[in-house]
Amino acid sequence: MAGQTGWQFKDGAGPDAGSFAPAPRDSAELQQVAGQPTTYWSDAIRRIRRNKLAVVGFWIIIALLVVAIVGPMVSPYSYEDQDLENTFQSPTLRHPFGTDQLGRDQLTRVMYGSRISLAVGIVCAALNFLIGVTYGGIAAYFGGRVDDIMMRIVDILYGIPTLIIVILLTVLFKDRGVNPLVNVFIAIGLTYWLPMARIVRGEILSLKEREFALAAKTIGATNNRILFRHLIPNAMGPIIVTVTLEIPSAIFTEAFLSYIGLGVSAPVASWGVLASDGTQAIRSYPYLVLFPALAISLTMFAFNFLGDGLRDALDPRLRQ
């Protein structure tokens, strides 16, 4: 255990085999490789498979995707068909989730809502990824003055609650007549990249001082090559974790915005709209709020389970 603090054992805990001076150039031991032939990623997949919650989360997400794509297609109702003779029906076989104040089938509307939620989650996470990785990567790689200024801007934005920025942006775009869904994409996509930028910057800053990055420089690698071949691939673990965890927060924000009347609005059915409508009638028809509430919660669980598992598997240092 010399030369090391702590108690971690590397694979093959014994001392390096081999004989002593004079050192052999081709001794048999040197030809042996200690570890399993695994890569970082196969190792991560193995670890995440052992995390039951993460696996459950993964399958829930797959199921949600299937429901979102197939559900509204096979449903006999459409999300906007009104049936004024059958309003406020309790859950039955014909309408498993009941119907709303206009007689619309609640199950179809919840399934349709999953399309919106997942779309918001994926598009916003992609936007955050693009902006955050570029911003953080540039700040860290160039360092010095550039880094100071770019990070000061991030600090200022951090000082304002993100939700308020999103609300203000949504109001702005909504009143300018932007399509509500696009509006949500823009508002969330433009604001939620801050954590990504910080994480990427932190990772790159520490990675670029690591000896392998210096080694790349000494063999004449260009800046671009160092950034894209050496630094970003090594920061991929935390980046993936952050993306996975930004999806549920985008979904939450969309639902929140729709809930307070700023996101998409009727007849388009987003889970936030459904929950908001349901809350109006919570005393008489509690099932109307229950199903969209459960749908949102389930989706958030699934992504958080997966994100948590990914974090443990990919990057034990990153914690919160």
Binding site: F256, A275, I282, V289, F301
Partner: peptide
Amino acid sequence: MFVALLGVSVPNFIMAVLLMLIFAL
């Protein structure tokens, strides 16, 4: 940790509605 993971997952307005449904109504 399981409960805590649920806790960070449930949006506050959903939590509000659920709590109200159960404990008040």
